[in-house]
Simulated assay, not measured.
Amino acid sequence: MTDPKNPYLPEVATILETVQETHNIKTFRVRFDDEAKMKAFTFEPGQVGQLSAPGIGESTFVINSPPTRMDYLQFSVMRAGEVTGMLHGLAAGDKVGVRAPLGKPFPYEAMKGKDIVFVGGGIGMAPLRTLFLFMLDNRADYGDITLLYGARSPADMAFSSELPEWTSRKDVNTVLTIDREAEGWEHRVGLIPNVLLELAPKPENAVAITCGPPIMIKFTLEALKKLNFQDEQIYTTLEKRMKCGIGICGRCNIGSSYVCVDGPVYSYAQLKALPNEL
Results as ranks from 00 to 15, higher is better:
221 L>C: 09
231 D>F: 01
229 F>Q: 05
217 I>D: 03
235 Y>D: 03
232 E>G: 03
216 M>Y: 07
236 T>D: 06
210 T>R: 01
239 E>K: 04
221 L>D: 01
239 E>G: 08
223 A>F: 02
238 L>V: 05
215 I>P: 02
215 I>H: 09
207 V>H: 04
216 M>F: 11
212 G>R: 05
210 T>G: 02
207 V>S: 05
239 E>I: 08
209 I>A: 05
217 I>H: 00
207 V>D: 06
231 D>M: 04
207 V>I: 15
207 V>T: 14
209 I>K: 01
230 Q>H: 14
208 A>E: 09
234 I>Y: 00
230 Q>Y: 10
239 E>Q: 14
232 E>N: 14
217 I>Y: 03
221 L>R: 07
232 E>I: 06
239 E>M: 12
238 L>I: 03
229 F>K: 01
217 I>F: 04
207 V>P: 06
233 Q>F: 10
217 I>R: 05
230 Q>P: 06
214 P>T: 08
219 F>H: 13
208 A>D: 08
209 I>H: 02
231 D>V: 04
221 L>E: 06
228 N>L: 12
239 E>A: 12
219 F>A: 07
208 A>I: 11
226 K>D: 12
217 I>G: 00
215 I>E: 07
215 I>L: 14
236 T>E: 04
217 I>L: 15
211 C>A: 13
237 T>S: 15
223 A>T: 06
219 F>R: 06
212 G>A: 08
234 I>R: 01
226 K>P: 00
223 A>I: 08
221 L>F: 14
210 T>W: 00
231 D>I: 07
213 P>Y: 09
230 Q>K: 15
231 D>W: 04
219 F>T: 12
236 T>Y: 04
210 T>M: 11
208 A>W: 05
213 P>V: 11
229 F>I: 07
215 I>F: 09
213 P>M: 13
208 A>S: 13
239 E>N: 12
213 P>A: 15
218 K>P: 00
215 I>M: 11
228 N>Q: 15
226 K>W: 05
